[in-house]
Write a protein that binds this DNA or RNA. Structure first.
Lengths: 220, 220
DNA sequence: GTCTATATGGGGATAGAC
DNA sequence: GTCTATCCCCATATAGAC
């Protein structure tokens, strides 16, 4: 029993420090100190710093992606076999990242910052492992988007999917700075408000007319 | 003369290493070695590691923001005093980041990664200094957007501006991973192709109908 | 499983000769 | 302005007692 508690305390402390100081700025010494555990126990339980970081990501990102797939399943059952509504797909993707109801505010913020940090991580094992966790979500959502937007080429569907990812992730990462940047005009960083603004923006972008075809290839 | 060359060599080496290894993963020792200069000369010329990093950002971000403002000026002159076209505003913001024609491919990539890294930096002096560099761009573009989208509240205009920022920045940061994530479907990371996909998406999002008003405040 | 102690290496910054 | 040499701190990881 002591083991489980220690591991979770380490994970909790690690993710908080990661949010505050970033990847390179977080040391396992600091994590051990914040968690109230011994320095050596971190390597005992996780093997290395990199493996610990990865465990932190998995603990938070896994449930979000599961929820996304679950919402997409629901949507597909409602629509029997027709194309899905774009706004619904958008919501299924955005909502779990913003609004996991089981998380309190500070935990949600943690998740937001983790996503922002990690996705602009330099290349390496950490980044690879992170991207791998999203492969099923990428596949399922791009298929759904492709059916909902039949006028787009597969390439443009994929690009637009990643525009959605980018809009979401970067907004999460910048949320904490919004009040300062906007000089007080925008102070709402709570998940509900952000979702209210985000979904219409993304859905409209997804539904935009297809980009013009390049002229260089006139062989069709 | 030797001074100028040394400073530039340091900046060149620093930005390349920052792109490859991120902020925390880059040491001034490594920078000095890559630049072929003495370790002590970095502190002599820049004072500290943090000041050096800041100089790296300023050298690249400054011209991009100047170009943005210049394009916005052009647009305003064309439209005399009417509202600006949304697609034009979008292009004025997106184009300089993607397509500074004077930069070769590797330099452009540097800029992309720098933006991605920095914007998800943890709080601190580096982040503050970075955000400060954008204050004029934020102000000018939100005003232009507000006039082009008179149905939106100032809050929603500002949120949408930052959605645009997020879409752009995150796309730049992820561009290098697109071929792998898409399993070869999307391999175009060149600036021209990205702009062709990006602008319609963002412009459509910006022009989306206003979000529903919250119900809690019915005092108007 | 948990601790102390330490091995081993790298980091930023600087003093002082040239 | 540029170099060598060094101070001092911090990092990760592990060995070995309990």
């Amino acid at each position: 029993m002591a083991t489980k508690e220690t591991k979770e305390r380490i994970l909790d402390a690690a993710e908080q420090l990661l949010v505050e100081h970033g990847f390179g700025g977080t040391s396992i010494r600091g994590i051990a100190s914040a968690a109230g555990v011994n320095l050596a126990s971190i390597n005992y339980h996780f093997g290395s710093k990199e493996a610990l970081i990865q465990a932190v990501f998995e603990r938070r990102v896994g449930p979000v992606n599961e929820e996304r797939l679950r919402l997409l399943d629901q949507l597909e059952q409602s629509a029997s076999d027709g194309p899905l509504p774009v706004a619904g797909i958008t919501e299924a993707f955005v909502h779990p990242a913003l609004g996991l109801r089981r998380l309190d505010d500070s935990q949600r913020r943690v998740l937001q910052c983790l996503l922002g940090h990690t996705i602009s991580l330099p290349s390496g094992k950490a980044r690879d492992a992170f991207l791998e966790q999203f492969s099923e979500v990428v596949q399922r959502f791009t298929i759904a988007l492709g059916r909902a937007l039949p006028d787009l080429t597969p390439q443009e569907v994929l690009w637009r999917f990643f525009f959605m990812v980018g809009t979401l992730v970067q907004t999460l990462a910048m949320a904490e700075d919004m009040p300062r940047i906007s000089r007080g005009l925008c102070g709402e960083t709570d998940a509900e408000a952000m979702e209210r603004w985000l979904v219409p923006f993304i859905a409209a972008g997804l539904k935009a007319p297809a980009a013009e075809v390049r002229l260089e290839a006139d062989d069709a």
